[in-house]
């Protein structure tokens, strides 16, 4: 009942006044048992999100609802929780504390900034532009996830450690039922004036920027920074680390299942082969081709033994 009351009260009391600010704080933490790569991804994201707070590894995998209290303790209204299982699989929980929806995703194809060696770089604490695929608007669960991404990965204007420029962009794309995430640096290079007049003429007119008025136009290109990863949504829960499941991805196959299937397929190969061997043996016995066991071969009426007995 408390959750229901909270939900009701939250809606009424947190009704935003017009012109209110976008205030977000993210608690970033992982469970125990993360590998070094997972840890590096966490630190990469931490460096990209100045409005985030890093916390020590969380010790429990069963009582995840305790994270809500932790978030409250640090005044965070978003939780980004990395759960490692078996020292190899990484699950990412995104939650809107204390009663927002929770999304659980499987994180794959992880490449950290360190190992990617991209030449892109950006200011620590600059605010990113978030670029979403149009597919995010198509389905309800993707809309929810888009909203969560916007609030967690979008750095609010008023965050404490932000820098006043926009020099990187985060791309979220839906492909193959998964969400692919990329981070690019925005690289502006000067372009000759003539070209801009033809290409971006009207944009130039609209631009009220006082600095570069009519002087030069810039050619924008992107350079990747890293990290790269792919998220497969698994489950959406209605409240934060609890509550009923309101979405479940039917197509998600857990990595455990995949591994066991592989193992089983291997075992199946052995079983099939032995079975086939036994079958062949039985068949040969039936045809009377074996010396021991099986059916005796019929005596040929024309053989020497019969004719000259």
């Amino acid at each position: 009942m408390a959750a229901v009351y909270k939900a009701l009260s939250a809606d009424s009391s947190h009704e935003r006044e017009p012109g209110s600010k976008n205030k977000q704080r993210v608690l970033i933490l992982s469970s125990r048992g993360v590998t070094s790569r997972h840890r590096h991804l966490l630190s990469d994201l931490y460096s990209l999100l100045p409005h985030s707070r890093k916390e020590a590894k969380f010790d429990s995998k069963a009582k995840l609802f305790q994270l809500n209290e932790l978030a409250e303790l640090y005044n965070c209204n978003n939780i980004l929780f990395f759960e490692a299982r078996k020292g190899q699989d990484l699950y990412l929980w995104m939650s809107k504390a204390p009663n927002g929806p929770t999304v659980k995703m499987h994180l794959q194809n992880l490449h950290t900034m360190e190992e990617l060696n991209f030449i892109g770089n950006c200011l620590k604490g600059s605010r990113p532009i978030l670029s979403f695929d149009a597919a995010f608007e198509k389905q309800a669960h993707l809309r929810v996830m888009k909203e969560l991404f916007t609030q967690i990965f979008g750095v609010p204007k008023t965050a404490r450690k932000t820098k006043p420029f926009v020099d990187h962009v985060m791309g979220f794309t839906v492909a193959d039922g998964k969400i692919w995430i990329r981070v690019y640096q925005i690289n502006e290079s000067e372009q000759s004036k003539k070209k801009t007049a033809t290409v971006n003429g009207e944009e130039m007119d609209v631009d009220p920027a006082p600095k570069k008025k009519g002087k030069t136009e810039f050619n924008v290109s992107l350079v990747e920074i890293g990290p790269r990863f792919v998220l497969t949504p698994i489950v959406i829960q209605e409240s934060s680390f609890g509550g009923p499941i309101i979405y479940e991805n039917k197509e998600f196959v857990s990595p455990n299942q995949i591994r066991s299937d592989l193992r089983r397929a291997k075992a199946g190969r052995y079983n099939r082969r032995t079975e086939a061997g036994q079958d062949a043996k039985a068949r040969r016995g039936e045809l009377g081709l074996k010396t021991h066991g099986g059916r005796k071969r019929e005596k040929d009426p024309l053989s020497d033994n019969v004719l000259f007995a």
Partner: peptide, 22 residues
């Protein structure tokens, strides 16, 4: 759930959220 957590985009300036959907 979405309605509950969604930012009031119509009331916010673009520079507040900087999110673009293709």
């Amino acid at each position: 759930g979405l309605k509950r957590i969604q930012l009031p985009y119509s009331k916010l300036a673009f520079s507040e959220y900087q999110s673009i959907t293709s």
